[in-house]
């Protein structure tokens, strides 16, 4: 397809580097947020990267053996061992004299919040030199939308049906990881790719355990339209449900995006089928919880370095 002659030629300015390490033909659903997270993260990490992926959506998206949709090496490990496998890979590479390669553990929210937390905690305590990326789609999407401890209050999943929707809040994994006093921790969102790129780039140059928590909407599990993926990500930041911040050495908290006027959480909830059953009372409870969490975060930033 060629541009018409009347159109003036202008150089296209791209806000991200043009190199692609993730290729077409992968098996993700339409409008998947996790693939976007991988695409941006690999743009920042470059070709000298090795991934360790436990059972999660990405172990399926990548494609069956002997193919792969990524042009970097991947190691599929057991569910609970994403962090330690990566630490072992890094130790092995260092033994053979390779100090350049970045080793990344790439796990979903089940492999981070529930099943992999023991290994992750151990790695963070030993301060092994890896990047741990958790892409958070708020349930076990790979196996068919079961509740995980990352599922937010009020959400429908197949194991928390509408009559007994989840009545516990989402686990605050960032606070848990910050309490390990790791050198770098950040939350990122696929709707802000430049911010995500900058954070992964920054993490690449730091030594020690780095933790990046990426928010990735899932149209299949959240019962949203596939074209709303980016809109949901933006709303999550503007309603302060998923604030973007960085923590250095567990002490310096910095909020990256502070919405000028906070949007009500209702705007975010009504786009999603998994929250359709919520009544006004439940929505106002969620709003209260979000406000409390945001106020606490602002206070953390105010008093830091702690």
């Amino acid at each position: 397809m060629k541009a018409d002659k009347e159109i003036k030629k202008k150089r296209m300015r791209l806000s991200l580097p043009p190199e692609e390490y993730m290729h077409s033909g992968h098996l993700a659903c339409q409008g998947c947020g996790a693939t976007l997270a991988m695409r941006y993260a690999l743009k920042a990490l470059g070709p000298r990267t090795a991934l360790s992926i436990p059972a999660c959506c990405w172990s399926v998206i990548d494609g069956p053996f002997p193919y792969s949709s990524l042009s970097i090496p991947i190691f599929h490990c057991a569910f609970e061992t994403a962090a330690v496998s990566a630490a072992g890979l890094k130790a092995g590479l260092e033994m053979v004299g390779d100090k350049e390669t970045t080793v990344v553990a790439w796990a979903g929210d089940g492999g981070t919040f529930d099943i992999g937390i023991q290994a992750l905690s151990g790695v963070a305590e030993r301060n092994d030199n890896i990047i741990y990326v958790c892409y958070d789609n708020e349930a076990y999407m790979n196996t068919g939308i079961q509740r995980s401890s990352a599922t937010p209050y009020g959400a429908w999943t197949t194991t928390t049906p509408v009559k007994h929707y989840k009545n516990r809040p989402k686990k605050d994994i960032d606070a848990i990881m910050a309490a390990h006093r790791i050198p770098y921790l950040a939350t990122a969102n696929i709707s802000y790719p430049e911010d995500l790129y900058r954070k992964v780039r920054k993490a690449k140059d730091i030594k020690g355990t780095r933790f990046i928590h990426i928010y990735t909407p899932c149209p299949t599990g959240w019962k949203t339209r596939p074209e709303d993926t980016i809109k949901l990500g933006k709303l999550a930041v503007q309603t302060c449900i998923f604030p973007l911040y960085e923590v250095e050495d567990g002490s310096t908290w910095k909020i990256n995006i502070k919405p000028r006027d906070k949007k009500p959480v209702k705007d975010y909830l009504r786009l999603q089928g998994r929250f359709r059953h919520l009544n006004e009372e439940a929505i106002s409870f969620i709003q209260e919880e979000v406000d409390k969490k945001w106020a606490r975060l602002l206070k953390y930033e105010e008093v830091s370095p702690l």
Partner: peptide, 22 residues
């Protein structure tokens, strides 16, 4: 088209490529 590159940036399938700046 104003050549902002947003469609290229947000494509989850990397199915948009750039040819002749479009």
């Amino acid at each position: 088209c104003i050549q902002c590159g947003i469609c290229w940036k947000f494509c989850p399938d990397t199915a948009i490529y750039i040819e002749n700046e479009y």
